[in-house]
């Protein structure tokens, strides 16, 4: 069921043709995540028996690396494949092609159990703060999910860590006994961030972490993300359809369109001097609030 050869899927491990083998991505020790030529195609259920099923090329060859402590932003319109890319990086989807190396380990080639264990080092925050928390669990349980699944922590220590991390995201100890529906959207996203933070991961993938929130709350949550980076040295992969969000948080940006990166570079450069037509239209389409 699981792949016994950890090199499989890394591409070109054929020993007889070493000379012409495709060069494996060079991993710098300070590189947290290296995404190499990732493709993800979905087969839609066929509409009629006679026609071939439709293929959706959600992600169509994406390559990038994020250095330790960096924050890499991906912007693009809705439906361009951002969330799919996030799930691929998180190892929540099988890849059609390519590799995702987390600290030099190809996560898609790892046996299920090893990948599961590795998950404590990379966590995710989802777009919908109403959908990503189980409505039947109390906050204490939700926030403790990763340590409950991945560590043998004693109950009292677990509780202490939950409270510690809740405080770090600006929530109170008394919030542990509440259900998600008792919170506002912004607070719920804080809960989700606390859950992602509790194992002290090296990487947090945030898929539109503020898109579902009111504009006034967005700034608070983004500030929180930045403060946490200063405090814990987390690396971010931040995904958004909102250029302002990415500009606010990220030091490097990639512009995504139809499953590929059309442009990539330091944030200021991209915003000051967009090279690609798609980036220009994207920039032009956004009213510059508080530029």
């Amino acid at each position: 069921m699981t792949d016994s050869d950890p090199q499989a899927g890394a591409g070109g491990a054929d020993s007889t043709t070493v000379a012409v083998a495709k060069p494996a991505p060079v991993i710098d020790p300070s590189t947290v995540v290296a995404v190499h030529d990732v493709h993800k195609h979905y087969t839609l259920p066929r509409e009629t028996l006679w026609r071939d099923p439709t293929l959706v090329h959600a992600v169509n060859g994406v390559t990038f690396t994020i250095e330790k402590g960096g924050s890499f932003g991906v912007v693009g319109e809705s439906g361009c494949g951002k969330s799919t890319l996030a799930r691929c990086v998180m190892g929540l989807e099988t890849l059609t092609q390519g590799s995702v190396e987390f600290r030099g380990q190809n996560i898609h080639a790892l046996p299920v159990e090893e990948l599961r264990q590795l998950r404590r080092h990379f966590q995710m925050v989802f777009q919908d703060p109403f959908g990503s928390l189980d409505p039947r669990m109390k906050v204490a349980r939700i926030v403790a999910e990763p340590i409950e699944a991945l560590e043998d922590t004693k109950l009292d220590e677990r509780r202490a860590r939950v409270i510690e991390v809740l405080r770090a995201v600006g929530l109170k100890e008394s919030d542990t006994d509440k259900y998600p529906h008792e919170f506002s959207g912004g607070q719920r996203q804080r809960i989700a961030i606390a859950r992602a933070l509790i194992t002290r991961p090296a990487l947090i993938v945030a898929d539109e972490p503020v898109s579902a929130l009111d504009v006034s709350v967005q700034a608070q949550v983004l500030n929180l993300l930045q403060d946490l980076q200063d405090e814990f040295g987390v690396t971010y992969l931040l995904i958004s359809h909102d250029l302002a969000v990415v500009k606010f948080v990220c030091d490097e940006v990639a512009v995504m369109n139809e499953g590929v990166f059309v442009e990539r570079g330091p944030t200021e450069e991209i915003f000051a001097n967009p090279q690609h037509d798609y980036t220009k239209t994207l920039l032009a389409a956004v009213p510059q609030i508080g530029g």
Binding site: R119, Q123, M124, Q127, G131, D134, P146, R195
Partner: peptide, 10 residues
């Protein structure tokens, strides 16, 4: 989505 979150949590 909370199932995806649970999977991501390990």
């Amino acid at each position: 989505e909370f199932i995806l979150a649970a999977r991501a949590a390990g």
